[in-house]
Measured scan of single mutants.
Amino acid sequence: MTEYKLVVVGAGGVGKSALTIQLIQNHFVDEYDPTIEDSYRKQVVIDGETCLLDILDTAGQEEYSAMRDQYMRTGEGFLCVFAINNTKSFEDIHHYREQIKRVKDSEDVPMVLVGNKCDLPSRTVDTKQAQDLARSYGIPFIETSAKTRQGVDDAFYTLVREIRKHKEKMSKDGKKKKKKSKTKCVIM
């Protein structure tokens, strides 16, 4: 069974824990209790493949930012979460993405942009803004509501699919490099 290491990042209060708990335990946590770091595991079937999701729910508070490099190193894919009623959390996505790329030393890291709290009427981040940002990053965008469960499975499952595509691409690139290195030079 394939294991996928997913990391949920975003500013404090955007609903990272609520999304994760909704996926794992099928219930909505409405009281806000700032996370330092929590880890969850769940076995699911995605596109006919049974897999184990190892999900790291991270601290959004700035005082825990020193811990970010460590979990970013171990993560295979990242859910970059903002709240649709919090423009600052949307603007912060850029910083999370840049930090992930720096730590992973790669421009090509599996990510999904997630606009959470889409059940709320007080939207300050337009869907088109988020779609445009995701398009500019070359990553999928999904709106979710941890409260109603809308888009929750889709967000995590899409990230797994992005990781699969990335692994497939990397193995193809690896095979191309191996083929090239088999060419021999004969000096007579």
Rank of each mutant, 00 (worst) to 15 (best):
E3S: 05
E3P: 13
Y4Q: 13
Y4F: 11
Y4L: 15
L6A: 11
L6S: 05
L6G: 04
L6I: 13
V8E: 05
V8T: 09
V9G: 10
V9R: 01
G10M: 02
G10Q: 02
G10I: 02
G10R: 01
A11Y: 11
G12C: 06
G12N: 15
G12P: 05
G12V: 05
G12K: 07
G13C: 11
G13E: 14
G15W: 02
G15S: 02
K16P: 01
K16N: 04
K16M: 01
A18I: 04
A18M: 08
A18E: 01
T20N: 07
T20D: 05
I21M: 15
I21F: 11
Q22M: 05
Q22H: 07
L23Q: 14
L23D: 03
L23W: 12
I24R: 04
I24M: 11
I24E: 11
N26M: 09
N26G: 12
N26R: 11
H27W: 10
H27Q: 14
F28C: 03
V29I: 11
V29K: 03
E31Y: 15
E31N: 05
E31M: 14
Y32R: 02
Y32Q: 02
Y32P: 02
D33Y: 02
D33F: 01
D33I: 01
D33K: 00
D33V: 01
P34V: 02
T35C: 00
T35Q: 00
I36R: 00
I36N: 00
E37W: 00
E37V: 01
D38M: 00
S39W: 01
S39F: 02
Y40H: 02
R41T: 11
R41D: 08
Q43F: 11
Q43M: 13
V44N: 14
V44E: 11
V45F: 09
V45H: 10
I46E: 15
I46H: 13
I46Q: 15
D47G: 10
D47K: 14
D47Y: 05
E49T: 08
E49V: 08
T50V: 14
T50A: 10
T50E: 14
C51Q: 13
C51V: 13
C51W: 12
C51G: 10
L53P: 07
L53S: 13
L53V: 09
D54L: 02
D54T: 03
I55N: 04
I55L: 08
I55Q: 01
L56N: 01
T58F: 00
T58L: 00
T58Q: 00
A59I: 00
A59R: 00
G60L: 00
G60Y: 00
E62R: 03
E62K: 04
E62L: 03
E62T: 04
Y64W: 04
Y64P: 00
Y64H: 00
Y64D: 00
Y64M: 03
S65P: 00
S65G: 05
S65E: 10
S65Y: 05
A66N: 05
M67N: 00
M67K: 01
M67Q: 00
R68T: 02
D69V: 01
Q70T: 09
Q70P: 02
Q70E: 15
Q70M: 09
Y71T: 01
Y71L: 00
Y71K: 00
M72R: 00
M72W: 00
M72H: 01
R73P: 04
R73W: 04
G75A: 11
E76M: 07
E76A: 04
E76V: 10
G77R: 02
G77Y: 03
G77S: 04
G77F: 05
F78V: 01
F78H: 01
L79V: 06
V81M: 13
V81K: 15
F82C: 14
F82P: 01
A83F: 02
A83M: 07
I84Y: 14
I84H: 14
N86Q: 13
N86A: 10
T87S: 09
T87F: 15
T87W: 08
K88R: 12
K88A: 09
K88N: 11
S89A: 14
F90C: 11
E91C: 04
E91S: 14
E91P: 03
I93G: 04
H94L: 14
H94I: 15
H95Y: 06
H95D: 12
Y96T: 04
Y96G: 02
Y96R: 05
Y96I: 15
R97E: 06
R97I: 15
E98P: 12
E98D: 06
E98W: 01
E98M: 08
E98F: 03
I100V: 06
I100T: 03
I100N: 02
I100G: 01
K101H: 06
K101W: 05
K101F: 05
R102L: 07
V103C: 13
V103W: 08
K104G: 04
K104L: 05
K104Y: 03
K104R: 13
D105P: 07
D105S: 11
S106K: 15
S106I: 13
E107V: 10
D108R: 08
D108I: 05
D108C: 09
D108Q: 13
D108G: 07
V109Y: 04
P110V: 03
M111V: 04
V112T: 05
L113C: 05
L113N: 06
V114N: 02
V114P: 02
V114K: 01
G115T: 10
G115F: 07
N116W: 01
K117G: 13
C118I: 10
C118R: 08
C118W: 06
D119P: 07
D119L: 13
D119N: 13
L120F: 15
S122Q: 13
R123V: 10
R123K: 11
V125E: 13
V125K: 10
V125W: 09
V125D: 11
D126W: 07
D126Q: 07
D126T: 07
D126F: 09
D126A: 06
T127A: 05
T127I: 13
T127C: 11
T127M: 07
T127E: 06
K128C: 07
Q129A: 11
Q129K: 13
Q129W: 10
Q131H: 06
D132E: 06
D132I: 05
D132W: 05
D132P: 10
D132S: 05
A134N: 08
A134D: 12
A134E: 15
R135Q: 07
S136H: 14
S136Q: 13
S136I: 06
Y137L: 11
Y137A: 10
Y137T: 09
G138M: 06
G138S: 09
G138W: 03
G138N: 03
I139N: 04
I139R: 07
P140F: 02
P140T: 03
P140L: 02
F141R: 06
E143A: 12
T144H: 09
T144P: 12
T144F: 09
S145W: 04
S145A: 15
R149E: 07
R149L: 05
R149C: 15
Q150S: 15
G151F: 11
G151S: 13
G151Q: 07
V152W: 15
D153H: 06
D154R: 07
D154S: 07
A155G: 12
A155S: 11
F156V: 06
F156H: 10
F156W: 06
Y157G: 11
Y157C: 10
Y157H: 10
T158A: 14
T158D: 04
T158R: 06
T158H: 15
V160M: 13
R161M: 04
E162A: 07
E162C: 04
E162H: 08
E162Q: 11
R164N: 11
R164W: 07
R164Q: 15
K165Q: 07
K165D: 11
K165L: 12
K165M: 04
H166V: 11
H166G: 09
H166T: 12
H166R: 09
K167Q: 08
E168D: 09
E168P: 13
K169A: 07
K169S: 12
M170I: 03
S171F: 06
K172A: 07
K172D: 12
K172S: 11
D173M: 03
D173N: 12
D173C: 14
G174T: 09
G174P: 06
G174I: 08
K175F: 09
K175S: 06
K176D: 13
K176Y: 14
K177V: 04
K178A: 09
K179R: 06
K180C: 11
K180I: 06
S181F: 12
K182I: 13
K182Q: 12
K182N: 03
K182P: 05
K184T: 05
K184Q: 07
K184W: 04
C185T: 08
V186W: 13
V186M: 07
V186T: 15
I187R: 12
I187A: 15
I187P: 15
I187W: 10
